Structure formats: C-alpha cells, structure tokens
Amino acid sequence: MRHSPKGVTIHPDFDALVSATAGRLITKLIDVQSRRGEATVVLTGGSAGEAVLASVAAAPARTAVDWKRVNFWWGDERFVAPDSPDRNALAAQKAFLLPLGADQDRVHEVPSTAEAATVEEAAEIYAAELERAAQSEVLADGFTEADPRLPRFDVLLLGVGPDAHVASLFPEMAGIRTTGQTTVAVRNSPKPPPERVSLTLEAINSAEEVWLTVAGEDKAGAVGLALAGAGPVQVPAAGPRGQQKTRWLIDQAAASQLPDRLLEAGDHES
C-alpha cells in the first residue's frame, strides 16, 4: 500500500470508512497506553463522528483498551441545555462513553447552559479546564507541552462540513482567525444552533495526530479545496495539522473531486 504525503486514505463507502476508522482509533489508543499507561482523545460530533464512536463501542477489539484510563475532550460543542439532542456530549455518552465504562472524571465536557450564563463564559471555563489538565500532567510526569495551556492530545478527531468548516470554525468568521486563545465562543454560527464553543485552530494543531473523517458527495468540494492547498480562513479544513500526523480518512464519494495526482497517491482500502 502506498502512503500519500498528505495522509489520504480512501474507503469504498461510508460503512467501510466508519469501521476502519474505529479500528484505527482502538489501535492508536492501545499503542499509547502501552507506552504511557493512559491516552487522550478529542472527540467530534456529526454523522460520521458519531458512527465511528458507535462502531468502537461494538468492536470486539475494544476490550484491549483500558477505557478507564482514557481522557476525553471535545473539539467543539453546541451551547445548549445539557439534555438537548443537539449536544455532542450527550450522543457520545449514550453511544460510546457509558457502554465502555469510561471514567467520568476523565470526561471533560464543554459547559452547557446549565453551567455557564453565556457562551463566552462557557469558552472561558473550558479553556481553564484545559489549562488545569495541562498543569496536572506536568506535576504527574514532568511532561511539558509546547503550549502550557493545553494537555497532551494523542489523537484529535474532526469532521468536515460541506462549507469546509471544522469543529465550529466557519469560513471567513472570527473563530478561524482567532489566535492567542485555546477556545473561542461562536455566537452566529451559520449552522444551527447559533451559539457554540470551539477549540481554536492553534489548539487543534497542538495534537500529536489529527484525523479528518469525511463521508458523502456533499463534502467532496470541501475536501478537494482543502487538499489542493486553499487558505484556512476561506477553507478551515485546510488548516488542521497534527504535530506528527495528519490523516484524511474519506469515502469514495467525498474523494470524487480530488485531483488525479492525489487519487493516485492516496491509499485505497477495501
């Protein structure tokens, strides 16, 4: 199997993409735990993201991971009530975290409307929790992250919208331009609900590995632009870069507008 410099892996359909990504995530967590004892993953919402989590929870290999020693964060969250079906964390708890018996003390949810008065306050609380976790790592094992405001992210999962947004960083909006912060409050999201909290691109790019999991022909234009070298302000999906690896895990439909040179270079899995 050839490996593309851009880390593109093309799967024949949605189901194959979800199953393979779930397997990759389990393997990654096993590897990290074997080296360090615990691991950290940043979760995403969306149809593909939620399907991957459900697939992990159903996979026989899941038992090889010590789920009580995995730390969970979110790349973004809708600022809604804690029981709202729009909340990414609620879906993840039901499909993934509760069935696997995750340690809830290691599950770091973005504050909901029950815990913060405004979306700005929620973003500030989340940023403070990230910084506390980073300082705890320093005290526990002497690990010093390049950004002392952020804990170590072993793998960060992202979806991509048809407009090329990632997390809740939308084209040409303030969030994708934000620097010097780890989180950002979004008040006028073009996709409902309008109020959200997101990691900034700086925070996303602190992760050891960033995986963008994308399915569907409606995402093909966004994937094509991002991999063709567009700027992240116009095409936020072009911005994420893992410190060690950036993986594009896509299905054949999402790959339909890739240039021939990337189609030829990318991995094709069946």
Rank of each mutant, 00 (worst) to 15 (best):
Ser112Gly: 14
Glu120Tyr: 14
Glu172Ile: 06
Asp13Arg: 09
His3Gly: 08
Arg78Ile: 07
Thr200Phe: 04
Asn71Met: 13
Gln257Trp: 01
Ser47Tyr: 07
Pro99Ala: 07
Val210Ser: 03
Trp73His: 06
Asn88Arg: 05
Arg2His: 12
Thr118Phe: 10
Arg2Cys: 12
Ile10Asp: 04
Gly180Gln: 10
Ala133Gly: 04
Glu269Phe: 13
Ile30Gly: 03
Ala254Val: 07
Val235Pro: 05
Asp31Phe: 14
Pro99Asn: 07
Glu269Lys: 14
Ala95Gln: 11
Ile26Asn: 00
Asp154Asn: 11
Asp86Tyr: 02
Thr9Asp: 06
Trp248Cys: 00
Ser270Arg: 13
Leu29Asp: 01
Glu269Trp: 13
Glu172Leu: 11
Leu156Trp: 05
Arg62Tyr: 05
Pro162Trp: 09
Asn71Leu: 13
Arg36Gln: 13
Val186Met: 07
Ala89Asn: 09
Ala20Arg: 08
Arg261Leu: 13
Phe170Lys: 04
Arg78Asp: 04
Phe72Glu: 05
Gln252Cys: 13
Thr182His: 04
Thr182Pro: 09
Val197Ala: 03
Thr178Arg: 07
His3Phe: 10
Val235Ser: 06
Leu262Lys: 03
Glu145Arg: 15
Pro259Gly: 08
Val8Gln: 00
Asp260Pro: 07
Ala207Phe: 00
Thr118Gly: 11
Thr179Tyr: 06
Ala134Ile: 02
Glu124Leu: 04
Ser4Gln: 07
Thr118Glu: 11
Leu43Arg: 02
Ala253Asp: 10
His3Trp: 12
Glu120Val: 15
Ile26Thr: 03
Leu53His: 13
His11Met: 05
Glu145Ala: 15
Leu225Asn: 00
Lys94Arg: 14
Glu50Asn: 15
Val155Tyr: 01
Gly142Thr: 11
Ser47Asp: 11
Asp163Lys: 08
Arg196Ile: 04
Ala215Val: 05
Pro194Ile: 11
Leu98Val: 15
His165Val: 03
Arg152Trp: 04
Ile176Met: 04
Val186Cys: 06
Asp251Leu: 08
Ala64Tyr: 14
Leu227Asp: 00
Arg196Asn: 02
Thr200Pro: 03
Leu98Ser: 11
Asp141Ser: 12
Ala255Gly: 03
Val214Asn: 01
Gln244Ser: 12
Leu130Trp: 01
Arg177Ile: 09
Ala238Asn: 02
Lys94Thr: 14
Ala39Lys: 04
Val110Gly: 01
Gly266Ala: 13
Gly229Tyr: 09
Phe79Gly: 05
Pro259Ser: 08
Asp267Ala: 15
Glu172Gln: 12
Met1Thr: 10
Leu100Lys: 09
Asp251Lys: 04
Ala64Lys: 15
Asp83Ser: 14
Pro171Ala: 01
Phe72Leu: 15
Gly229Cys: 07
Asn188Thr: 15
Gln33Gly: 07
Thr182Ser: 12
Ala59Asp: 08
Val42Gln: 03
Gln104Lys: 14
Ser256Thr: 14
